Structures are given as structure tokens and as C-alpha cells.
Amino acid sequence: MDDRSLETLGLADAPRDHPLLYPGAWPADSGLLDGDSLLPLDRLVHDDRAPVLAVGSNACPGQLRRKMDAFGIVSPLPMVKARVTGIEVGVSAHVSRLGYVSASPFHAPGHLRELFVIWLDDEQLAVIDASEGVPRPDGNYGRAWLPASDVRIELADGTTLPGAFSYVNRHGVLHDGTEAPRTHPGQRPLITELLLGSARLRQLFGVTPEEFCARARADAGLCERGTLLFAAEKLVTTSGLEAYLPAGPA
């Protein structure tokens, strides 16, 4: 029998432990995350679970495993590759306490890319909510329902979902210099470019991606100052998805 362990598949490392790897390795295809293995999936739609569109490390099996392990959750978790139209992966306008600048979706009409839908039972959804700061009033993300009228999610068997949840950053996203949202290029190139572009950011976080990650992980207050600096230096724009954010707890 083929070895389907996360280690063998190159999917075991979690950005929580290795922030410069963010968003982490994604699977080549759909699968069932079961313990430390990614097994073949027998069906794509799981009507008894909540569909969540993953745009960052929630599509990394190693990261998902770490999140579930922290709460003793061992139930299998379906991960389904999908063709998604209307969404692109942007850069969250906050510095994470885990040492990286994470991803957040932004509205991109007509844009097509492959993302993962993770199907979560109630316990799993509560864990992912907590990891994204939902429903804390000071949380960085809100869980928003993105309807099919704006975001088309098509599975490999031709099924089109009526919509899915996704985590939208309440601070907005970083722009590309033209007020349009910038795409997330991966952690090392992103932090390198951000540090080169801001002397004040270098004063806070150092001059290399390694320094940035180490300082952010060591000081939650510094992360808050970095988040405020993004706004102060006018690096932030809207994602176009704010209307879908719940006013209160998701």
C-alpha cells in the first residue's frame, strides 16, 4: 500500500512552527486528512459539514493537523480542490502573532484559480474559528458566507456549490501601490519587499525576513504596532468582501 503519510507527501510542516514557509505546502489533489495521513477521498460534497474556502495555511495539511491536535480533535477532515471564480488571495493588513503576514481573500470578478474547500464538522469549525480570532470583537478575521452569485466554486465532478465560508480580514488587505489589492507571493518575498519599502517597519522588525519572524513571534504588542503601521503608511485597501462580514459573532 502506498505511503500516504504527510511526511512522505511533503505536507507535514506547519507554518505555525516555520513561519517563513507560510502558507505551507498544499496537496496536489483532494484528500481526506486523517491523523498524519492524507487518504483518498470517496466523495467531494459533504452536506453534513460546513464548506470553508481556504486561501492560506488552512489549505496546508500540516497546519490543519497542528490546529486540531491542540484541541484533541482526531476526526477526519475532507479537503477538496476546487476551481474558484471571483476570488484572489491577498495579503492581510495585520502582522500575525505567529510571525508571518497571512493571507486574506479579495473580490476579483472573473478571476479563476484553484483553491481548496475544507469541509468541517462542528468541532473542527470551532477550532478553525478560534484560530482566526472568531468571534472575538478584537479578532483579525470574520467568517463570511460568500454566495455563488459573487463567487463560483466548481468541484472536479462538475458540482457548483451554493457558496462557502471564508475568513475575511477585518483590517482590509495590503494594496500594490495603485490601490488595488496585492496578491500574496509567499512569506519570504513578501516580507523582503515590505521591509525594503518601509524604514519604520525595519525599525520595528529588523532588516531580514528571519528577524521579522523572530521579533513578531516574541512580542504580541509589536505585532499590533506593525498592524497600525500598515494603516499609518497608507498601505491598506478594502478587500471588496466587507459587506459579507457579520456585524457580530460569526
Rank of each mutant, 00 (worst) to 15 (best):
A14H: 01
P15Q: 02
R16E: 11
R16H: 04
L21P: 01
L21C: 00
Y22M: 09
G24A: 09
G24M: 02
A25I: 07
A25P: 08
P27A: 06
D29T: 05
G31H: 04
L32T: 00
S37N: 01
L38D: 07
L38I: 08
L39R: 13
P40I: 14
R43Q: 14
H46C: 04
R49G: 01
A50G: 00
V55E: 03
S57V: 02
A59C: 14
L64Q: 02
R66S: 05
R66Y: 05
K67C: 00
D69K: 11
F71A: 10
G72C: 04
P76A: 09
L77P: 00
P78R: 09
M79R: 03
V80S: 00
V80T: 10
K81D: 02
T85P: 06
G86A: 10
I87D: 04
V89K: 08
V89I: 01
V91K: 06
V91H: 08
A103K: 04
S104K: 03
F106S: 02
A108C: 14
H111I: 03
R113M: 09
L120F: 01
L120C: 14
D121T: 06
D122R: 13
Q124D: 00
Q124G: 01
A126L: 15
V127A: 15
I128D: 11
S131M: 05
E132P: 01
G133Q: 13
V134L: 03
R136M: 06
D138A: 06
D138V: 12
D138M: 02
G139M: 05
G139P: 08
N140D: 07
N140P: 04
Y141D: 03
A148S: 07
D150H: 10
V151Y: 02
V151W: 13
V151I: 11
V151T: 02
L155S: 01
L155Q: 14
D157F: 08
G158N: 12
T159L: 05
L161I: 10
G163Q: 10
F165I: 03
S166C: 15
V168P: 03
H171F: 03
H175V: 13
D176K: 10
D176S: 14
G177R: 12
A180G: 02
T183K: 13
T183I: 01
H184I: 05
H184A: 07
G186M: 04
P189T: 04
L190I: 12
E193L: 01
L194Y: 14
L196V: 00
R200G: 02
G206K: 15
A214M: 14
R215M: 15
A216E: 06
A218Q: 14
D219A: 05
A220M: 00
G221I: 14
L222H: 09
R225H: 09
R225I: 11
G226H: 05
G226V: 08
A231F: 13
T237M: 11
T238C: 06
S239A: 12
L241F: 15
E242F: 04
Y244C: 10
L245Y: 08
L245V: 11
P249N: 09
